[in-house]
């Protein structure tokens, strides 16, 4: 943790190609989102769950590859988890009010 060096620069195996593949994946998922929105799933909850699931997968792709979390130390992954959990707590506990009013 103390070496202020390029700790990961050399591990970039995939290079340009991997970024292009990820981008292609993102575009495909965007297409799926749009297509899925046209399908009537008979449940508003299910629709939004699907939309959020796809958005989360896209986010994971961006964060993992584009934002280099794949190549970073455990520390960065932990910090990211702390942030995500915090947000889930905030929204989750708020719904203990809203959903039970």
């Amino acid at each position: 943790m103390h070496q202020p060096t390029h700790t990961h620069a050399d591990d970039h195996a995939g290079g340009y190609g991997i970024y292009l593949k990820v981008w292609l994946g993102l575009i495909v998922f965007t297409g799926i989102t749009v297509a899925a929105a046209g399908v009537d799933l008979n449940s508003a909850g299910l629709t939004i769950a699907l939309a959020l699931l796809i958005a989360s997968v896209k986010t994971a792709l961006v964060v993992y590859f584009f934002m280099h979390i794949k190549y970073e130390h455990l520390l960065f992954k932990l910090m990211l988890a702390v942030c995500a959990i915090t947000f889930v707590i905030f929204i989750g506990l708020t719904f203990f009010d809203i959903a039970y009013r």
Binding site: T33, A37, I48, A51, A55, T59
Partner: peptide, 16 residues
């Protein structure tokens, strides 16, 4: 900025 838009898009434009 991109990630935030990834969520904004389905939440505002694709509500059925």
């Amino acid at each position: 900025v991109d990630v935030i838009w990834i969520f904004l898009f389905p939440l505002f434009y694709l509500i059925i």
